[in-house]
Simulated assay, not measured.
Amino acid sequence: MRRRIVIAPDSFKGTISATDAALALARGWQSERPHDEVLLVPQADGGEGTLDAIAQASPGAQWRSVRVAGPTGEPHDARWLLLPGTHAVVELAECCGITLLPRSHAGELALAPLAASSRGVGEAIAAALDAGARHVTLALGGSASTDGGLGALSALGLRVLDGSGAPLPDGGGALSRAGTLDAAALRAAPAGGMTLLTDTTAVLTGPSGAALMFGPQKGATADEVATLDAALARAAAIAGGDEHLLPGAGAAGGTAWGFARYWGARIQSGADTIAVLTGLDSALEGADLVITGEGRFDATSRAGKVVGGVLERASVAGVAVAVVAGQADPTAARDAEAHGLGRVLTLSELAGSPAAAVSEPDRWLHAAAAAIARDQNEQYSWGAWTRTKNN
């Protein structure tokens, strides 16, 4: 029986793009079931790969490039998009994302949770404004920093000063000494406003805030997480307003908060926005299965990220789901499967180790989709997916 299969993964951060992941998954499926209809709808949520997804869905998009500071200051060229109608799209991960940190001789990222800055994305936004952009969409995700976006705003004219009026260095750790946030020289927001695409519903501070939820992923110890959380709270108190309470304000180390507070930017779900642009709902109509995926499946996957958005849309459409992840938190995977949200496969298990999976992502994505296709021929496996689909 010919089936309709939708392939809708996110990028596997720092390893393979969403487009290439979708192609590898499709080849794996078709190696077992060559006559099925396979639709490729790669996704993004504001993190790495968002520019590519928007460019594919936007006729007339023009690629631009600008020299910016990486997360710890190293200059590099970052891409951004100019869309028809003087609309610029900038991706934080492209400018100062965690994958741009320097690496050790062993290839490991030199994480800098207290010192990493969002300055580079502010430099890219300045370039877009200089090029005539009247509306800016900023894709937030994959950050290395927890600085409330004040590094980015500093590149646009904000002055972050200590109690004696001296400028503070970049990085979230320095904000614990903040005394004044001087916006007198801050560039005006673009005339058409700013939209923030976020991959989380986290607020700025507290148990559901940027530091506690994402600081450990950026290398922060327990003490450093506490330092960063207190520093963000101090910055919010100095800045005033209640934007720190907005869902999504904690995106990209609080960068969403900074632009919401100082430029009146509007926060919206990156996953939902890209799903609409790419026509994901239309693709799901009449589908038998959707395969989605990301680099790591954990408790945050269902809180604003691509996989969570695909799960929700598939549930509404009555479509069964399989999740392919580079790695997975065992508890999150068991919970997803127990609640009928879809089967979870990891490339690390297929390859034998995380290192092997990262070294050949195409091979193991192909293998994962082939395994899912083989399993669908077994009554138990397909029956389990079918029961999920019909719930």
Rank of each mutant, 00 (worst) to 15 (best):
V89F: 00
L82N: 02
R33Y: 02
G46S: 08
V68E: 02
A57K: 01
G85P: 05
G60K: 07
W63M: 02
G70W: 00
A78H: 05
T86P: 05
Q56V: 08
R103P: 13
L92H: 06
G47Q: 09
L40K: 14
L92F: 12
V38A: 01
L82A: 12
D45R: 08
L39H: 06
W63P: 05
W80F: 13
S65E: 15
L83I: 07
G60V: 03
A78Q: 02
G49W: 06
L81P: 07
E37T: 15
G28L: 02
H105I: 14
T99K: 13
I16V: 15
G85E: 06
H87F: 10
I54S: 08
S17I: 12
S31Q: 13
V89A: 01
L82T: 07
D20M: 02
P84E: 15
T19G: 09
S58K: 06
T15Y: 03
I98G: 09
A21R: 00
G107I: 07
H105D: 15
L83T: 05
P84N: 08
D36A: 10
Q43H: 06
R64Y: 11
G28C: 05
D77Q: 06
A22E: 03
A44M: 07
G14V: 11
I54Y: 05
R64F: 13
P75I: 11
A57P: 01
H76E: 05
D36V: 06
S104C: 11
I54L: 14
A93M: 14
H76P: 00
S58R: 08
E37L: 14
P71T: 06
F12Q: 01
I54N: 07
T15K: 02
H105R: 15
E37W: 06
T19R: 15
R64A: 14
A21Y: 01
P75E: 11
G47P: 04
L51K: 03
V41H: 04
T50D: 05
R103Q: 15
Q62T: 14
S31V: 06
L83E: 06
G46I: 07
L23V: 12
H76M: 02
E48W: 10
C95Q: 00
A61H: 04
D20G: 04
E32P: 07
D36Y: 09
V38G: 03
Q43I: 04
L39D: 12
Q43R: 13
G28H: 04
A61W: 08
A18K: 07
L101Q: 12
L40M: 14
H76R: 13
P34I: 11
S65N: 10
G97Q: 07
W63H: 15
I98Y: 15
I98D: 04
L83F: 12
G14A: 13
S17A: 10
A53W: 02
R67F: 04
T99E: 12
T72M: 11
A53G: 09
